[in-house]
């Protein structure tokens, strides 16, 4: 592990200017991913700017009924917040489905958005990896990829984004606010994670040195009836094999509004817009739900050993939407 400098920022302006001073500097939130990667040599920053002390914590309800979530809010605080549970239950469920209690107590919302893939080749510095060393190659495509992407991957990278929280945020059109030395900015989550293309090492559209300050969820009445379901190899903490955030508004047996996002299937939380389009205005039946899943998964390109994710996601869509529809009918 390389030696590094550590600074504790007391204000947002100070934090972004401190970071701008380091050639290989990183913001430190909960450190639950970054510090592990530093130990294994995947990350080797020369400066850590600790932002946990910044006044960016807390959840506030906006005038229109949306939420503003501060970037240093811990996963635990986010998950148990009554307004989160009431207005966006799938978000609370998603956060609670991730990691362990100990990790959730320190992990932050901003850090969660920036967590790196759990691809085994990415974590092994003795192997090539286009994400870690651009241009070095991707051994996962021909190698071990049971839990890799089926959607949106390229010949350069087939890794997945491991976040649970991000899947719910994607379903609810979250907007990420950030601060830079040149001033603040915003990115809708749909634009926050760029397509893999030939630059898998470029994982976000954030400007260099930007500090995430908040995540805003616009008001979404449909989200009050929402659910996150995570499928994983064991009941104890594990990254998802496939997951789903969904919200459903059924009126007179017809789907009035629906939100669907997939996790663990792509380099980013995967908003299933084709499925939503297929379903909107359709009868709220298992057949429609299956057709919607198929509409989305038609674009899936399984690798040699992860084709099982297609029936998994299809079954998840049908199962979770059916549950939501049954709840609505009660």
């Amino acid at each position: 592990m390389k030696e590094f400098a550590y600074s504790r920022a007391t204000g947002v302006e100070e934090a972004v200017s401190l970071l701008a001073g380091g050639s290989e500097a990183r913001f430190l939130g909960g450190g639950t991913n970054l510090v592990d990667l530093m130990k294994s040599g995947v990350e080797a920053p020369d400066l850590l700017v600790d932002v946990r002390g910044l006044p960016l914590g807390g959840v506030e309800v906006t005038a229109d009924g949306g939420l503003v979530i501060g970037a240093t809010t811990t996963n635990s605080d986010l998950a148990v917040h009554p307004e989160v549970r009431r207005r966006f239950p799938a978000l609370s469920q998603a956060v609670l489905a991730g990691a362990s209690g100990q990790l959730r107590n320190v992990a932050t919302v901003g850090g969660n958005l920036l967590q790196r893939t759990r691809c085994g080749y990415f974590a092994d510095t003795s192997r090539p990896c286009n994400k870690r060393v651009p241009g070095s190659g991707c051994p996962a495509i021909e190698g071990e990829h049971h839990n890799h992407a089926i959607l949106g991957w390229s010949d350069h990278c087939v890794a997945t984004n491991p976040s649970d929280m991000g899947v719910a945020l994607a379903a609810f059109d979250a907007v990420v606010s950030y601060e830079t030395v040149d001033g603040p900015g915003e990115l809708p989550l749909a634009e926050f994670y760029p397509a893999v293309g030939d630059t898998p090492h470029v994982e976000t559209a954030l400007p260099a040195g930007a500090l995430i300050t908040a995540v805003t969820l616009p008001a979404a009445p449909v989200a009050a009836r929402s659910r996150y379901r995570k499928v994983r190899e064991r009941a104890s903490y594990a990254f998802a094999t496939g997951s789903l955030a969904a919200a459903l508004d059924v009126r007179d047996g017809v789907v009035h509004e629906v939100r669907i996002a997939f996790g663990a299937v792509a380099s980013r939380p995967w908003r299933a817009r084709a499925a939503e389009l297929s379903l909107t205005g359709a009868p709220a039946t298992a057949e429609s739900f299956a057709a919607a899943a198929d509409a989305e998964l038609a674009a899936a390109k399984p690798l040699a050993h992860n084709g099982y994710k297609i029936p998994l996601l299809r079954n998840l869509v049908v199962s979770v939407l059916t549950e939501l529809a049954e709840e609505a009918a009660r």
Binding site: R118, G120, Y121, A123, D124, S126, R127, P139, E142, G143, E144, H146, E233, R234, A235, S236, Y237, A238, F239
Partner: peptide, 30 residues
């Protein structure tokens, strides 16, 4: 029965899940 499997890359022989996040063992919830 349910979790443990040391996964190796067929090209270089190295383990690709050589940590306890990748190599699952039963824990309390299981």
């Amino acid at each position: 029965a349910l979790h443990e499997e040391g996964l190796r890359d067929a090209q270089f022989g190295g383990q690709v899940n050589g940590d306890l996040a990748g190599y699952h063992v039963s824990a309390h919830a299981d």
